[in-house]
Design a protein around this nucleic acid. Structure first.
Length: 309
DNA sequence: GCGACAG
DNA sequence: ATCTTGTCGC
């Protein structure tokens, strides 16, 4: 049997997925629903979550989904859960959620059952929110299904609705001089789809922030900035580190036993103010703190809707 | 044929 | 997404 690798999911599956996105999109709330979101210092915010999925190199099926929860504003890991999963849906631009969200949902539900007190008040998601082909990216998808406030944090510009990573765009990026600087991403449809944000003083490449669910774009950008010790906001970065580390172990690699230097973590300055941030940039020294609880067992997940085969 | 393509 | 040590700089 030839693999479906060549053309990806059939047109029929894509239209099913589009219908699902359209259906769920009606539930997106693109404004602040919590008091802390409007507070200049985010007082009342205590836990910020991050999710990510990492992949096994030569494998198109095995992956590791992680959910971490960080204290705010300290940004220390207070919860971490990683789980090996078997991906069923292929990656198709515009349909990332159908590949990753089911597993992230399970992690959130597990947390809800076992440690409800650690439930994050907002989730930073690796990917876009309303900055999407149909205005419903993975951050919206996860937000609606969990009913948690969510923020889309993408590392590359998704070129939709006339948005282009062209000379003009690059020039605007060049004008972002310090952490917190940003400019709106205005689509041809006349809607502001998101913001390009310089998240760190020592990082040239911006992040592309967009609304996921239950939070305004302004608050989303402000919060993202408050979570950045480096270019990638800590919740997402820690989730990424955890999932990769989990894969290493599961592959039986002789990774560093329990060697992790707990470098002094200092809170990130939220208000616009310089505080001599001088660390690397991008993805520098990875100081992974072994989270309190770590229960995970390799195994395969049963997925609903593998109808593209 | 060419370019785009979140993760 | 994944491949990645040493190395240049503050």
């Amino acid at each position: 049997m030839a693999l479906e690798a060549a053309g990806g999911p059939p047109e029929e599956t894509l239209s099913l997925w589009k219908r699902e996105q359209a259906r769920l999109k009606a539930h997106v709330v693109d404004r602040d629903t919590e008091a802390w979101q409007r507070d200049p210092a985010f007082s009342g915010l205590q836990r910020v979550g991050g999710v990510d999925v990492s992949f096994v190199k030569g494998d198109s099926v095995r992956a590791c989904a992680s959910l971490v929860v960080l204290s705010f504003p300290e940004l220390e890991v207070v919860y971490e859960e990683s789980r090996m999963v078997s991906l069923t849906a292929p990656y198709v631009s515009g349909f990332l959620a159908f590949r990753e969200v089911p597993f992230l949902l399970e992690l959130v539900q597990q947390l809800r059952e076992k440690e409800p007190g650690l439930m994050p008040q907002v989730l930073l998601v690796d990917g876009n929110g309303v900055l999407h082909h149909r205005g419903f990216g993975v951050a919206c998808h996860l937000g609606v299904l969990t009913d948690l406030p969510c923020v889309g944090v993408a590392k590359k510009l998704l070129q939709v609705d006339g948005l282009e990573n062209n000379a003009l765009h690059k020039e605007k990026i060049r004008l972002l001089q310090t952490r917190g600087d940003s400019f709106p991403l205005l689509g041809d449809s006349g809607t502001v789809l998101g913001m390009a944000l310089r998240s760190h003083d020592r990082s040239t490449r911006p992040l592309y922030i967009s609304v996921g669910h239950r939070m305004s774009l302004e608050a989303a950008v402000r919060l993202t900035c408050c979570c950045c010790r480096f270019r990638i906001p800590e919740p997402v970065r820690q989730a990424d580190i955890s999932s990769r580390e989990h894969i290493r172990k599961s592959l039986g690699l002789p990774g560093p036993p329990t060697l992790r230097s707990p470098k002094a973590q200092r809170p990130v300055a939220c208000p616009k103010r310089d505080s001599g941030e001088s660390s690397g940039e991008g993805q520098p020294p990875q100081d992974h703190s072994p989270g309190p609880r770590t229960a995970s067992r390799p195994g395969s997940q049963e997925q609903a809707g593998k109808d593209w085969q």
